[in-house]
Design a protein around this nucleic acid. Sequence first.
DNA 1: TAGTGGTCTAGACCACTTA
DNA 2: AAGTGGTCTAGACCACTAC
Lengths: 237, 237
Amino acid sequence: MKNKYNGIYQELANRIKDGMYQPLEKLPSEHELVEEFEVSRETIRKALNLLAQNGYIQKVRGKGSVVLEVGKFNFPISGLVSFKELANKLGKESSTKVHELSIIHPDRYLMNQLKANEQSEIWKVVRVRKIDNDRIILDKDYFLKKFVPSLTKDICEDSIYEYLEKELNIKISFAKKEFFVEQATEEDKELLDLQMYDSVVVVKNYVYLNDASLFQYTESRHRPDKFRFVDFARRQT
Amino acid sequence: MKNKYNGIYQELANRIKDGMYQPLEKLPSEHELVEEFEVSRETIRKALNLLAQNGYIQKVRGKGSVVLEVGKFNFPISGLVSFKELANKLGKESSTKVHELSIIHPDRYLMNQLKANEQSEIWKVVRVRKIDNDRIILDKDYFLKKFVPSLTKDICEDSIYEYLEKELNIKISFAKKEFFVEQATEEDKELLDLQMYDSVVVVKNYVYLNDASLFQYTESRHRPDKFRFVDFARRQT
DNA sequence: TAGTGGTCTAGACCACTTA
DNA sequence: AAGTGGTCTAGACCACTAC
């Protein structure tokens, strides 16, 4: 752990997960934590703020930091979790089939979404995700080629994110997601096991790099009964 | 504005919204902001962190803080925005009809959701939200009565949140939301103008107070074509 | 009154980017 | 080398909660 406050955050989070600090009880006071970890109070406070942001504790002025129930706030699909991470977390049988992997030039819609121009080269990756033997999710990914020179079917079947982060050392920094429900298209019906459903949940995802440049646009189409999103929101002060 | 850093955050956010700082350009450096606002650097940094959290800027080490164009998108349904705030923001014709307002004792499902027992008294509020003359949203709210002694039809038709915050001075602090798609029930079909749709988007909302006690459980049922959720997620360091 | 968290300061050193 | 943001410190004062 590079940073002190990050290390302290991890340590305290583990203690909560391990039950050393029980839900509805209080954490040691900031002053006590200062003594235990031998750092300044602002450093402890950074760690506590991380815990609060991630739903581990609630700070109450004049009282202390109350531990929240953990399981409840450990969201299955919040933030920027990849399909692989998610499937692992849920312990589900899952697989990925690459349906298309090609380099295209953008049409007007894509130019707009990716802020590219007609000459831009773009990776198009279409993947079908199986969970428990049903084809549940249709993922269409578009990357700007200038960021990702090469891409193979094997990589796409594994985890593109792992490849980008570990091999290419591309740093993903933030994303904007948008959800809505849409009528299923012919393509959806063909590539997914939609059963009696005639609509899909569409998640549009815009992924940005560390320097704030738009890097990827993804459209993810889910069978409605298998879609679920959890959000933890803190009211602005 | 009570806090310095909050005031500075508001001021900088306004400058971005007003276009004084343009997207993809950089904010003044932290040092320059220290001089302008005559505060310490940590205070400036708190303001900048708020801007980053809310999608206004992206901080880049060694370079500066880049203004994002995403910031302008003031997400329609992110965080804890009430129906009234939302309708106002979108400038839509909207109204609320109270369908039921009563005090009940919880069944097993509600006892579980609200962590209440059989003796608890609970406000049940059922409201139908019209947008552009269609009944689009069915809201079922459950409050623990011990927190909200009195509640009238008028209040429910206006904004319950405004009443709670301004009149009762109840401080809402954080919430967990959960979304999924469900088959429409008979009640949905009766109370909403579902047209040809036979499913609804369900949003379950658990609202907590400052002291981390669960205060309200809400189930919000939307006609699928009128539902949309936007999320801004920052990757953990 | 004592203890808690919330804000704020004036420095310091570091890692990274740009020139 | 100069400028940027990232981390960290050792204090200070305040507002709120509990007793």
